[in-house]
Design a protein around this nucleic acid. Structure first.
Lengths: 162, 162
DNA sequence: TAGCTAATAGACAAGCAAATCCCCTTGACT
DNA sequence: AGTCAAGGGGATTTGCTTGTCTATTAGCTA
């Protein structure tokens, strides 16, 4: 019982994009900043692109850019792209009749799902950024991480010349 | 994002047992009543047995019996046996330091998990039974289901005699 | 327009949960 | 003690999720 890996990756990426507005972020930069595998990240971001949450630009100076305003963008928007919350609509036992009404057990389970959904709908990406907390978004972008991002941005290809 | 199949099966079985106190329920009966596969059900129930939630009796007139009082038995007790709620204890990015504190994103995700956990801890099995609702537990045990249970109890082996 | 760069798409591999099957052990009743 | 009914547990299969790799397409710069 947890949010799927993929959904978590997507959230990290969106938070990172919201933190770095303006210039497009390449897969390399995003991967370095969010600690998600370079080869998997594109897979995660594609559904977000299709949903219009971010746009991608090919070629030189390309990368991913957040399209939606973080103030109006919720956790739910991202999660439902890659790992939708599964509400219980009818009784899984599928007995006779009883469409539209759930038994106590499945009602209780669905209530819990509704709770999460509600919570995710109310939490905006923006609210994760200007937390006045000591812990910055994405669990601190420390020196190591920043260095990784810088090298991802500038000198990844320097391996050729050696 | 959902409760796992296995956890759902376990809950169904426990509710069924709570509804049928007294005599032990065989795998056949339980499977018929909860619509869970006869071959998979034992696998689901084993962890519950180890946790002392139910006891199993082998041999003739054997079967599963609920050990705990439904009033004190919560959804959480069952769920944590077969599909524990995964709380986020440290930042999945695992950067330097920051043990004990979560960044806003992961804090938000963990809050949601805490919410569910809290809800499950507060919902007892008993509360799913004496709901005065029109919909009985397990989404109506209708004629078809009862017939299946009866045949599971009495005449499953009648195939031999023919 | 040529050439480089970066995202895209698809095939492909690995790891894990769900489900099934079969044989073994245990226990009750005769 | 013998026999049959019932759960226990291991081996196996299937399918989904996660992850990797490569060839292709698109866009920017010169």
């Amino acid at each position: 019982m947890a949010v799927s890996q993929t959904a978590e990756y997507a959230l990290r990426a969106v938070v990172w994009l919201a933190q770095n507005p303006g210039e497009p972020q390449t897969t390399q930069q995003l991967a370095a900043g969010t600690k998600v595998s370079v080869s998997y990240l594109p897979k995660v971001l594609q559904p977000l692109g299709r949903a219009g949450i971010l746009t991608s630009q090919r070629g030189i100076n390309g990368g991913y850019t957040l399209e939606r305003d973080p103030e109006g963008l919720t956790l739910m928007d991202i999660v439902s792209c890659v790992d939708p919350i599964q509400r219980i609509k009818r009784c899984p036992l599928r007995l006779s009749g009883h469409v539209g009404a759930l038994c106590p057990l499945h009602q209780a389970l669905d209530d819990a799902m509704a709770d999460i959904q509600d919570r995710f709908e109310k939490t905006t990406i923006a609210s994760l950024l200007h937390k006045d907390a000591k812990i910055p978004p994405l669990c601190d972008i420390s020196k190591e991480s920043m260095a990784a991002v810088a090298s991802a941005k500038n000198g990844v290809r320097r391996a050729n010349s050696d």
